[in-house]
Amino acid sequence: MDQQEIRRQEVLARLERVTDPELDESVTALGFIKDIAIDAAGEVEISFRLPTYWCSANFAYLMADDMRSAVSTLPWVNAVRPLLLEHMYAEAINAGVARGASFKEVFGAEITDDLLEGLRLKFLRKAFQRRQEVVLRALLEAGWTPDAVVGLNLGELGVLVLQAPEWPALRLRYVDMRTRLATTPLGVDDPAFLTLEGAQLVPERLVAHLQALRTVRLNMEFNGAICRGLLAAREAMAE
């Protein structure tokens, strides 16, 4: 592999950690990244395309900004230019992110909320709920009782073995989000499962808790299915 290709792979690896906030899935896995151009001066241009021309500008802005900060940390990188393609606000977003402007600075006249941090948090919370649901359901399906499940701490969850091949990945994704949303550093004795509000789960309420989590997942799955389908259709139309 030549140096150019090595750098390309490094950029891709960073981009893998950038997620579509609405879907909680990586922008690389979703197929959003169209091109990565790297020049001799260490400037990186990342072309990306979303499923539609209409996708929310705030999400597009978040992703562009996340890409910029994720790739900027590579030691050889001098500048990062995310380049949103074929979007109703492509020009404004590309120019704004390039000069490090905030969303508010770019769209000040047209937006009502001040923005991105609140939005980012809102979607982290949804991701937490979705990831928790799959872990809880996996445990119950494997025969764990509600009492045993709600009693688990992070240390116990971390070493718990289930047959399902996807288990280690599900657990890792959940624990990662549990950690990111925690207000204080977590230890092995901290409970594995809390509600979004930080309350301890109780066995009698576990089924109701799961049902509430399900509606969050149904929304995200809806978005995920629509986005993937629309992106595939857009690719086909572009051909």
Partner: peptide
């Protein structure tokens, strides 16, 4: 361009969720 992109988006829904034998030409 918005008019074009709007119907393209609808066509995307049509393409994404229809059974193959029900697909229409653009």
């Amino acid at each position: 361009i918005h008019g074009k992109q709007f119907i393209d988006c609808f066509f995307g829904y049509h393409s994404a969720l229809s059974p193959k034998e029900e697909l229409w030409p653009k």
